[in-house]
Write a protein that binds this DNA or RNA. Sequence first.
DNA 1: GACACATGTG
DNA 2: CACATGTGTC
Lengths: 266, 266
Amino acid sequence: MLELRLVQGSLLKKVLESIKDLVNDANFDCSATGFSLQAMDSSHVALVALLLRSEGFEHYRCDRNISMGMNLNNMSKMLKCAGNDDIITIKADDGSDTVTFMFESPTQDKIADFEMKLMDIDSDHLGIPEAEYHAIVRMPSSEFGRICKDLSSIGDTVVISVTKEGVKFSTRGDIGTANIVCRQNTTVDKPEESTIIEMQEPVSLTFALRYMNSFTKATPLSSTVTISLSSELPVVVEYKIAEMGYIRFYLAPKIEEDEEETKPQV
Amino acid sequence: MLELRLVQGSLLKKVLESIKDLVNDANFDCSATGFSLQAMDSSHVALVALLLRSEGFEHYRCDRNISMGMNLNNMSKMLKCAGNDDIITIKADDGSDTVTFMFESPTQDKIADFEMKLMDIDSDHLGIPEAEYHAIVRMPSSEFGRICKDLSSIGDTVVISVTKEGVKFSTRGDIGTANIVCRQNTTVDKPEESTIIEMQEPVSLTFALRYMNSFTKATPLSSTVTISLSSELPVVVEYKIAEMGYIRFYLAPKIEEDEEETKPQV
DNA sequence: GACACATGTG
DNA sequence: CACATGTGTC
C-alpha cells in the first residue's frame, strides 16, 4: 500500500513538465526515504535523477519498496487536470497494476481521481558516483535558461568555461559566434540573484544545447541552478526543490572531435 | 424597420464567439419580445437557442416580425471590429436584404457601420418542449469549462451522474480513467461560486465531450452555468445573460451502445 | 481560425 | 492564482 500526500501539488506538475520531454517512460521508485526517479533520456545521452524526500510530504506511507513504471506523457496529461493549488495524493494498492492520482481542491469541494495503468519498464538503474568537481557555478535559473535559449538560436553546442572571474557561455554557428560572460557577484542583496563560482581549477567543456534547453524546463522549480563541471565528467545541472529534494540532469561533454564537426567550414 | 441599440456591445460579441464554431448559418428572429436565434449545429446533433429580450436593449424598435438569415462567421468578423465597450446598433430596413451593424465608441469619437448581406436559410425551427428535469445542477461556469477541457484530454465522452451529494463527471480513455466529483456547496459567501443541485431522482447520462467543449465557449457570458438532466432527454446547458435572456445548448445523450464503442477493450 | 503557450495584471 | 491579452504554430 502506497499513499503519498503532497500539499503543494503544483510541485509535481512542474516536475513532470520538466522531464516529460526528455524521458518517455520511467520507473518511479518509492521507499521509506522518498519518491525518486532515475532515467536516461530516450536517446540515451542524458540522465535525469529526481528525489522527493518523504519528509516533504504531508502524509507518506510506503509499506514496502515499490517501483512503478509510468508513461510520463500520460502522467503529465493527468497532472494537468490538477489545479495549481490542489493537494495531490498518489495511491497504489499492493500488487495493483494501476496508480491513482487524487486531486483535492483547496476548498475540498472538488475531488478528482485519475487512474493510470502502470507499465513494465527495464530499469537501467545506474549508480551515479559521487565526484569532485573542478568548478561549481550557482546562478539564477532564469538567467541560465535565457542564456541557453539565446545561444541555441546561433549554434548547436555551448562551451562553458569557468575561470575565477566568471563563467563564459560560447557558441558558434553559420551566422556567427556568441559569448556570454557572467561575472561572479555575491554582493547582491538577494542571494537567489547572485552568481557564485567555486573553482578548484579552470575548466572548459562543450555540450549540446538541445539537451541544456530541455533541462531548463525545470526552471520553475527553483530560482537558482547549480552547474557542476569537471573535465571528462558529465556536467550536473541541479535544481533544488524546496524542502523536498532536487532534480538533477547529467550530460556528457562533447569531445573535441565531435565539437569540430559542428563548426562551419572556414 | 428594425433598430436595436445595445449599450453593452461586448455581449453580442461574446454571443457570437460562443456559437459561431457550432453553427454556420442561422436565422435571427426579431419580434416585439426580443432578438432570438434557434439553430442546429452543422452536424445536426446539438441545438443552440439564444434569447435577448427587448427590455435589455437601450432602444428596441421592431415594427414587424422579421427573420434574418446570417452567416455567423461573417457576422462574427464584423463584430470583432467593434470595441469591447462600443455601443452596437443593429439596423435593417423593411424589405432590405442587408443588415447594418453600427458601432459607437464610448466617447462618440468613432462611429462605424458595417453592412452585411442577408441569406435565405431554411429554418428547421423546432419547438422545444418544456420538460421536467430529474436533476438541475448550477455551478461556476469556469469550473464546468475546466472539467470538460480536462476530461477531454483523457476520453471522448463524459458521464454526468447526479446524486444528492454532488455531481460526478467521469470519462475513460486509452491511458486511464478519470472521475471528478463536485460536492454541493451552498455555504459560500459568493453565490456565483457555489454549486447547487436540485434533484428529483438520480440520473446518469453520457455525452460527447466535443460538443460540451464547444458549449463552454459561452463561459464569458455568465459566471454560472445550469445543467439540466433527465434520462432520455437532451441535456440543457444554459448560460444566463444578465438582464437580457440566455443562451441554451441542447445535446442528446449517447445511448449505452454508443458509449461502449469508445471504451477500451478489456 | 483554433489552439497552445507565454506574459502582465488584478 | 485566475484572468485577460498577445503571440506563434498548425
